[in-house]
């Protein structure tokens, strides 16, 4: 295959994805202009695009974007540190695991966002509340996937470690953790989705901070194109996060 053909193959999925998105936007635009979708509920995609400049300049988008990004980053760091540590501890200590695993699993499906008044009381109307809400929402997924990853380490690899007389710490760091990394990353990405939803959601609910607060403000002003433009920036935060996480995952678990 020639290099030109190869590069075409490589960019084809991206081009197809972008094309599908643009086609969907075009269909919505046509449906709204034709009066089949109420334009007071759903703004036209062209209006959303036109509002980008206004939202960026007048609503201090950059500062808000950075604030939400920082909150997500803090929640992600807490998830990585505490989620993996708690998961590893629960895997290591059978009693702890048996005593708490069901609770953690139940917490994974609980609507933790409803706990925001409690967090407001504890941490005040601040970024800490938002970060902690994001952290708590993502924690169960990281814990459960860490346990699953560590538990599914192949027995023969553990036996290799035993045959080389590894200490428990070496066994964990040199065999169990690298073996579990792909599963842990799956949990981490899931946790991050919950964290991001909660960060923006709590910003919206307590009307504080970055993009969530902006969406709240714009929605209350009934500036629908601006609201959707702000939502696009939330998606951008998510996209940047996932690109970075996947890059880190590839770097840590490179096998080819």
């Amino acid at each position: 295959m020639t290099s030109l053909a190869l590069s075409r193959v490589r960019f084809l999925p991206f081009a197809l994805g972008l094309g599908t998105f643009l086609a969907a936007a075009l269909i919505v635009e046509i449906l709204i202009r034709a009066g089949l979708i109420n334009r007071f509920i759903v703004p036209m995609p062209s209006q959303i695009v036109a509002s980008f400049e206004r939202v960026i300049v007048e609503e201090h988008m950059f500062e808000r974007f950075v604030m939400t990004f920082k909150e997500c980053l803090a929640a992600a760091a807490l998830l990585a540190i505490f989620g993996i540590s708690i998961g590893a501890a629960m895997h290591r200590f059978e009693l702890l695991r048996r005593a708490t695993e069901t609770w953690v699993a139940a917490m994974a499906s609980a609507p933790t966002v409803l706990m925001y008044p409690l967090f407001l009381v504890i941490f005040g109307r601040s970024a800490t509340t938002i970060v902690m809400m994001g952290f708590v929402a993502g924690l169960p997924a990281v814990i459960l996937k860490t346990i699953e990853g560590l538990s599914s380490t192949r027995r023969v690899l553990l036996n290799v470690g035993r045959s080389f007389k590894l200490t428990p710490l070496q066994m964990f760091l040199k065999i169990q953790l690298p073996s579990a990394l792909p599963t842990i990353f799956t949990g981490f990405k899931l946790g991050l989705i919950f964290a991001l939803i909660n960060v923006v959601g709590v910003e919206f609910l307590i009307n504080f901070g970055g993009l969530g607060q902006l969406i709240n403000d714009l929605a209350e002003r009934y500036d629908l194109p601006g609201t959707y433009a702000a939502i696009c920036f939330v998606i951008l935060v998510s996209v940047i996060f996932f690109i970075v996480i996947e890059w880190i995952e590839r770097w840590l678990t490179r096998t080819d």
Binding site: R154, V156, L157, N159, R254, T255
Partner: peptide, 8 residues
């Protein structure tokens, strides 16, 4: 007997 290299 089983494949026991470290894939990472």
């Amino acid at each position: 007997q089983e494949e026991s290299t470290f894939p990472w």
